[in-house]
Design a protein around this nucleic acid. Structure first.
Length: 284
DNA sequence: CGCCAGGTGCTGA
DNA sequence: TCAGCACATGGC
């Protein structure tokens, strides 16, 4: 049986844990007192951030300091990246307010499945859907008193049915998730391979999934495949980008092209700052 | 009760 | 290309 384990504290300057976990990248973190508890792979993590250090308790020893650094994006030179995207007054305001927000490095399959569930949906319900998926198809995991379930392997969902997935409240997304799980389980979509190919190749492959359009593909590329030039555009980003287009007409294709040339290879980081900035401005 | 939610696929100009 | 529409569900 896996034993609780405490990692050596990780230097984490230029980092805001609460902002990062509240910025809509991940759906499985919960606040418990001054700590956050989440499940990464088959490991439960309990993390706290104070005095520029991240303390991490894990449910087993297979999760290392390097894994934690990579997951929380602490392996990125944030200062250098922010210099490249700090190119206008609006993104500058977002950076000033939320500096330390980082792009997480999540599992490709979990990210794909989660963002298939995210379409035309709200974050609270997405969290509930993913929790029920984990309870139904995941494996039990535990850390001290806390019990939960790992995110299901694609094979487990692939062996299910659309009807059963609908009973978990997935709605019309049930068929999309089922088909995607079968692509991955059947080896016809290699999410690990997406990390090695370039952004355009990864996005094209992701768009091959039914129920995955431009926006979801960019979320998966950014949060689940390490493609920092991916720039997901949803309703909040359209609101954010009105700043750049004032009275001009905006289509998503135009916004996408603009973002890539305006912000450059780390456009995805700019996207995350702008997204969080406009979303929180409407409910402070 | 009506509105909206980190959209997508389909259709017809 | 691009606008217009249906789509399941539940939180608020």
């Amino acid at each position: 049986m896996a034993q609780p384990h405490r990692l050596p504290d990780i230097p984490a300057a230029d980092f805001k844990l609460d902002t990062t976990l509240a910025s809509g990248q991940s759906f499985r973190w919960r606040k418990h007192d001054d700590a956050y508890v989440g499940i990464v792979g088959a490991t439960v993590l309990r993390v706290r951030h104070a005095d520029n250090r991240l303390s991490v308790e894990t449910s087993d020893k297979s999760f290392t300091v390097d894994d934690a650094k990579r997951y929380f994006g602490l392996d990125m030179d944030l200062a250098a990246v922010l210099r490249t995207i700090d190119v206008d007054a609006q993104v500058n305001a977002a950076i000033k307010r939320y500096r330390g927000l980082r792009v997480l490095n999540q599992d490709g399959w979990e990210t794909l499945a989660s963002f298939i569930c995210s379409s035309f949906n709200n974050i609270k319900r997405i969290e509930g859907m993913i929790e029920r998926l984990a309870q139904t198809y995941g494996d039990p995991v535990a850390l001290n008193g806390f019990r939960s379930f790992s995110f299901p392997k694609p094979e487990r969902i692939a062996a299910s049915t659309e009807r059963k997935l609908r009973t978990l409240g997935l709605g019309y997304r049930a068929a999309y998730l089922l088909a995607a799980s079968r692509l991955v389980a059947g080896g016809r979509l290699h999410l690990d391979h997406m990390r090695k190919v370039d952004y355009d190749a990864a996005k094209t492959a992701l768009l091959g999934c039914d129920g995955v359009g431009d926006k979801v593909a960019d979320c998966v590329a950014l949060f689940g495949c390490g493609k920092f030039e991916a720039f997901p555009i949803d309703v909040w980003m359209e609101r954010a980008m009105r700043y750049y287009f004032r009275h001009r007409r905006m289509t998503r294709a135009v916004l996408h092209r603009y973002a890539r040339q305006h912000f450059g290879p780390y456009a995805g980081v700019a996207q995350q700052y702008l997204f969080h900035y406009v979303r929180c401005a409407s409910f402070p």
